[in-house]
Amino acid sequence: MAEQLSRTHPLEAWLPAFAELSGAVRISAEPFVPMTVLRADPATAGDVRIRGAALPTAPGSWASAGAGWLIWLGPDEWLLTGPGAAPEALEEELRTLLRPVGGSAADVSAQRIGIRLGGPRARQVLAKGCSIDLHPRVFTPGQSAQTTLGQAGVLLLALGEDEFAVLVRSSFGGYLASWLLDASLEYAAPALTS
């Protein structure tokens, strides 16, 4: 009798450690969400609306598109997350939208997984391994950055004042989860009493 393998999240093994963190830093794994990379010339695709949102043209920015995010990746490249949709359906939906303006869409759902960071110390945790300016006046909600965190390349989104999403290649997910847990250790541990 063949053994049945059940589907698990790439970060399944880290979830108990995430759950044990205190309120100063909260880490959780984002559920699986279909993602599509869009390529289009911003000059011709200016009028295209992706789930109600225009393609963001400012470098390092993201916009809400339906329940997902529409993230700037380059001057002619964007990433759309589409929670709830089937990956193939999302790709087809975007192709239909972008084909008339000479753009393209490709499903990259298997590429990245999401980790969500929250809490008053989340910025400090990220700043330990990330060289970009994460000051609350500089890295404000609505901004994104493709950079390195620890040794992993990540796509960092500022969702709120103290709320961040880190999209990382799934094979780097375990490394990054361990790195984040280590970086949040000093904020998670109860204060020493003498």
Binding site: P59, G60, P75, S131, Q146, T147, T148
Partner: peptide, 14 residues
């Protein structure tokens, strides 16, 4: 730090 014309100043390793 190297200034990317799109992303701004970033570390050399990028």
């Amino acid at each position: 730090l190297i200034e990317c014309p799109w992303c701004g100043p970033r570390e050399e390793v990028e």
